[in-house]
């Protein structure tokens, strides 16, 4: 145990070193996918009506007429310098899209994750504690149905019920047009911008717009947490130290709440990181359903306009976020649980 400090350090270094080939292969895969596809990206983006001279000029300007290996080298070189390319259709920097639309996606996904944890963890604990009782059966069914529910179906049903029948909540966009017009931009995250300005009417307007999309996305992910927490509670309740705690005469309630639940929640951290990939896929659908101006919505529009450069840049950014979050999760679990480091 004397070397535990250095073993943590070496584990982290190895883990970081392992990320480099993953990223390189990710970049290569995306590049190959976009280039192997038939057709000239410029023609695809401009449509069939552009004059050939314009297409030729733009193709040359964007480097699509160079040999493939040169294109690849340039592409990797640019990405290493934080340049994810420029869209063909509207000449925006991909980094600019990430900064502007990413804030909306961040707001949505963080809020959704909070909803997922608030709903999923208590229900999972309850189901695991009362395994095979009616409450467990109901929760498991709820978990399965939530998993089976596409986020866009849940979103539309929520829109119909809370938006158009009950008329309680707005069903589209991130804020009312009036609010957007009157707000000043600091972080692009509207909730924070409203707080910074102390603009409470704007804050509540943004908050109202956030409720339906975040709850929709969050509920779908709550299913994952319910299943995970339930299994972990069942597993920890069988562990030796629980038996030992019982043998020491600690009351059953205290055994369950202090010992079992706490340990059952550690893997949740790992899973949050693993769910980032799924959460992003869900965000694309949620953003499209609720007309939410995030990266997923931007991707949807660029796909429709057949803008290969934009699609390539956005997909890479999504991939990098997933790689980074799995790295962070591994760091955290290595810090919490020493057993991880020796795997």
């Amino acid at each position: 145990m004397a070397a535990s400090g250095s073993s943590l350090k070496s584990y982290l270094l190895v883990r970081i070193a392992m990320v480099i080939p993953t990223i390189l292969i990710l970049l290569t895969l995306v590049f190959l996918l976009m280039r192997v596809a038939p057709g000239n990206p410029v023609t695809a983006a401009l449509g069939g009506h552009a004059p050939p001279a314009v297409i030729k000029e733009l193709t040359h300007q964007l480097g699509y007429d160079r040999p493939l290996y040169q294109q690849f080298g340039l592409y990797v070189w640019h990405i290493l310098h934080g340049n994810f390319g420029t869209t063909i259709t509207d000449k925006r920097q991909v980094t600019e899209i990430i900064l502007q639309n990413g804030a909306a996606t961040l707001e949505l996904t963080v809020a959704a994750m909070i909803v997922a944890l608030l709903v999923g963890v208590p229900i999972g604990l309850l189901a695991g504690r009362f395994r095979d009782r009616p409450v467990d059966a109901v929760t498991r069914l709820f978990g399965v149905v939530m998993y089976a529910m596409p986020v866009f179906v849940l979103g539309l049903l929520a829109q119909i019920l809370f938006g158009s029948i009950l008329n309680w909540l707005p069903i589209s966009g991130q804020a009312s047009p009036l609010t957007t017009a009157l707000m000043t931009t600091h972080t692009n995250i509207l909730l924070m911008d409203a707080v910074i300005d102390g603009n409470w009417p704007a804050f509540w307007d943004v908050f109202d717009h956030l409720i339906l999309p975040a709850t929709t996305l969050g509920l779908v992910f709550a299913g994952v947490f319910i299943r995970l927490v339930r299994v972990n509670v069942i597993r920890t309740l069988k562990d030796d130290y629980i038996e030992a705690a019982r043998a020491r005469g600690i009351r059953e309630r205290a055994v369950v709440y202090r010992h079992a639940f706490r340990n059952a929640l550690v893997p949740v951290i790992t899973v949050i990181g693993l769910e980032v990939a799924l959460l992003m896929g869900g965000a694309v659908l949620t953003e499209t359903t609720f007309n939410w101006p995030g990266i997923g919505h931007a991707l949807y529009i660029y796909l429709e306009n057949r803008d290969y450069a934009a699609v390539q840049g956005i997909v890479i950014v999504f991939g990098l976020v997933v790689v980074a979050s799995s790295l962070v999760v591994d760091f955290i679990s290595a810090l919490i649980d020493p057993r991880m480091r020796y795997k």
Binding site: T22, I23, I25, L26, L29, V30, L33, M34, V36, A37, P38, G39, A44, A277, L278, M280, G281, G282, V284, L285, L299, L303, V311, V315, F318, G319, L320, V322, V323, S326
Partner: peptide, 22 residues
Amino acid sequence: DAMYAIPPLLLALVIAFLLGSS
């Protein structure tokens, strides 16, 4: 492993987008 890094729906979306024309 690198393929795991791309969100599944996104990967499917890009493939469908690319194959759709041919």
